[in-house]
């Protein structure tokens, strides 16, 4: 009985993966070079964002969280912008790299919300 149900669950699982494929790889700006598949890109917003996300698109730059040489990549984003989006915040967007710019799937931005206001300027 239990073996049978385990087999059934596995079968369903295989059915799903064969139909829908795996998930999206999650990468940092530094790991993006040379990739042309759809990925979810996680990084920190630097510089001053410009443009209208509901018209031609919002342009900003995402940088690696860590590493000796923090790489960064320009991002073009359209759609809803979460409240917490601003320079210095960590965001995740889904999309593909096209001609050196990361073009995102509209509305795919997720910001990480710090429940704590902690960071470089935080009280010890």
């Amino acid at each position: 009985m239990i073996a049978l149900s385990v087999a059934a669950v596995l079968a369903v699982f295989l059915l799903y993966t064969s139909l829908a494929g795996g998930g999206t790889p999650s990468v940092s700006p530094g790991e993006l070079a040379g990739r042309s598949d759809e990925v979810s890109l996680a990084g920190r917003v630097i510089g001053t964002p410009s443009g209208d996300p509901h018209a031609a698109g919002l342009r900003f730059t995402l940088q690696d969280f860590e590493g000796a040489h923090k790489r960064s990549i320009p991002v073009l984003y359209k759609g809803s912008v979460p409240d917490l989006f601003k320079p210095g915040r960590d965001v995740v967007v889904t999309g593909t790299l096209r001609n050196g710019t990361f073009v995102t799937t509209p509305g795919s931005m997720i910001t990480k919300c710090p429940s704590k206001y902690q960071g470089a300027e935080s009280p010890a």
């Binding site: 799903y16 829908a20 795996g22 998930g23 790889p25 999650s26 990468v27 979810s40």
Partner: peptide, 27 residues
């Protein structure tokens, strides 16, 4: 836990999205 597991196995974190969960919620 797939992002953690795939990071450990393949060296690249893979995230499964809404379609994955919606599929199993229905099934």
């Amino acid at each position: 836990s797939w992002p953690i597991l795939s990071e450990a196995v393949r060296g690249e974190a893979v995230v499964v999205g809404r379609p994955y969960y919606d599929f199993f919620l229905r099934i």
